[in-house]
Structures are given as structure tokens and as C-alpha cells.
Computed example of a mutant assay.
Amino acid sequence: MPELPDLQAFSYNLDKKLAGKTLKHVAVINAKKLNVSHQELQGTLEGQKLDKVYREGKELYLKFSKGDILGLHLMLHGKLFLFEEKNGNKYPIIELHFTDGSGLALTDFQGIANPTLNPDDKEAPDALAKDGGVDYLTARLQKTKTNIKTVLLDQKIIRGIGNAYADEILWHAGISPMSISNKIPEHKIKELVRSIHTVLTDAEKAILKANPDIINGEVRDFMHIHNSKKTHSPKGEKIIVKEGTRKTYYTEEQELYS
């Protein structure tokens, strides 16, 4: 599943390519979870100019000239494709056709990628937002005995972080993923917040450097810890892989708070 840095890179490139174009037609092919009727989606968006494309949590937001927003959640296997005149990509969910003949398609072979018209505001802060900083995380972690990795993955607590980047962030901060959240001292929470910003922003830069035009897929080769091709951390410590519903990559150099 694309995570925050991937979606940041996608939104950057899509905004460059599509902002300022006028939407001619919305084709809804297989949007099972669309929150409005096909007719309402078309009636609301068609004829509007696309003002900008940006990221919110794990979604891409397309904001139009009248203030309406089309949210796109790629889920596990959703992909985005630009096309000219006609979409030739398989498994389309929705297609946006612009007046200049260009278009954007959201596809998913599982059929569960999810477009939403005017998504509800989310209570949880974005991982890169100011309101998700030290004060927020300190107060939030004091309330839970759940392990810290589970907290970072909970989109109702902080939005945008997924499995791979949770491992990278926790290694960078020197905190074991099995640490109990309310046992982590305040000075380490400050390090955690710094690591969230450093790891995620550096990852976006690495992704765009590796693939300047990326709008789908995942670039992971640069990752230090959550990387099946690596056996040791940059500090020389063996990488341990804990199996489960999600694999967790960590090292013994990360401190356990319990």
C-alpha cells in the first residue's frame, strides 16, 4: 500500500500535470464504495477547473474551483495512470476526462480503491501537520498501553504512516516497535516526532530522485531497515524480522520501554 511519502510524490507530479485543467467528464466504472450516486458525482464536478492535487493522510485530494474535493484512496493495489483521449489501462475504477483530451484513471484489480466526493474532515492529525507534534503525541501516548508501532499505524490517531515507514521511523528514533506507548519518556517522544518528519520528508525526496515522474508504484530500495535485501542496519546491527499479519523489521539497538 502506498504510504505518505509515495502519495506526496504522486500528488506533486499530478498537480504539475493536471492543475488548471477543466474537467469535461467523469466516468464511473467500478466504484463500489462511492459515497454518492454516479449522477451526483458527475453533476457536481463536471465543468469545474481542477485547482490543485494534494495529499491528506493516505488519500489524494483533487480540489476543484468551486471548493469540491474528490478524494482517492488507493487501498492496497490501486494505481493511477495518465492517458490521452482514451484510457487503455485494465481494471478502471473511475476516469477523469479533461477538455484538452487528457485524462486520469484510477485502477485496481481488486476493485476496492475508493473515490469519495467531499470527504468528511478527519479528527486525527496528519503525520506532518503541526497539530500532530510533541504535545499531541505525548498526551496521546500517555493514554494507551498499546505498543508504539500499533499506535503509529492507527489512522484514527495519526494519519499517513504505514507498516514500512513505521519501522523506519522507530529505528531512526531508537525506539523498539514493541515498546509500550505510555512507558516511552518525553525526551524520546520528541525524538520520535523529529524522526517522523525526517524519515518521511527524506523518503519523498529519495522517491522523486529515483523516479521524477512517479504517480504509482512504490520505491523502497533506499530504506535502511524495512528492506528484505538488507541484513544489517547502517550501524552494523543485525536486522530482525518479526513475522505476523504485518512483518516488523527492527534491531536490538532500538531501546525497549516496557
Rank of each mutant, 00 (worst) to 15 (best):
L82W: 03
L137N: 00
G20P: 00
F109E: 11
I169R: 04
P119W: 05
D135A: 14
P115L: 04
R159E: 06
H25A: 06
V53P: 00
Q8L: 06
T138W: 01
T198K: 01
R55Q: 13
E191N: 00
A27I: 13
Y91A: 04
G103Y: 01
I189F: 05
L80G: 11
D213F: 11
T231G: 03
W171L: 11
A166I: 05
G57C: 08
V199L: 07
H232T: 09
Q142G: 07
T231S: 08
H224I: 05
G88P: 10
E253L: 10
Q42N: 10
N216D: 15
G71D: 09
L152M: 07
P5T: 11
F10Y: 11
F10E: 00
A9N: 02
A113N: 10
G174F: 04
N118W: 09
D154H: 09
E95T: 14
K235R: 10
Q155E: 04
E243C: 02
E204N: 13
W171H: 05
D108F: 06
K79Y: 14
T99N: 14
K242C: 02
K66W: 07
N13S: 11
L50V: 14
A164D: 03
G162L: 05
Y12L: 08
S258A: 13
L34H: 06
L153S: 06
K235I: 05
A210M: 08
I69P: 13
G217R: 07
E168T: 06
A127L: 01
E186V: 12
E84M: 12
D213A: 08
P125C: 05
F109I: 00
T107Y: 01
F222A: 12
K183G: 13
G88K: 13
E243A: 08
T116K: 11
G133V: 01
I157A: 09
L18Q: 09
D120I: 10
F10W: 01
I69N: 10
A124I: 02
T201H: 03
K63G: 03
M75S: 14
I94C: 03
V241K: 13
T138R: 03
T107M: 06
A206G: 05
A139V: 04
F64G: 03
L80I: 13
I93L: 13
G71F: 03
P185N: 14
E84S: 14
T150R: 15
G133F: 03
M178Q: 14
L208I: 05
S179Y: 07
N30Y: 13
L76T: 08
L74E: 08
E191T: 00
G132C: 03
T99M: 06
K32E: 12
E252V: 14
K49I: 05
K242G: 11
A173M: 11
P185M: 13
Y91C: 02
I169D: 02
H97R: 07
K24S: 08
A129S: 09
D108K: 00
N163P: 10
T144K: 12
N30E: 07
L141D: 00
S258Y: 09
L141F: 15
E123P: 01
E56R: 13
W171F: 06
D100C: 12
L70N: 13
H226M: 00
D6P: 02
V241R: 12
L23D: 01
L60P: 14
E3F: 08
D120E: 06
G67R: 07
K52W: 08
E85N: 11
K149P: 01
E59C: 09
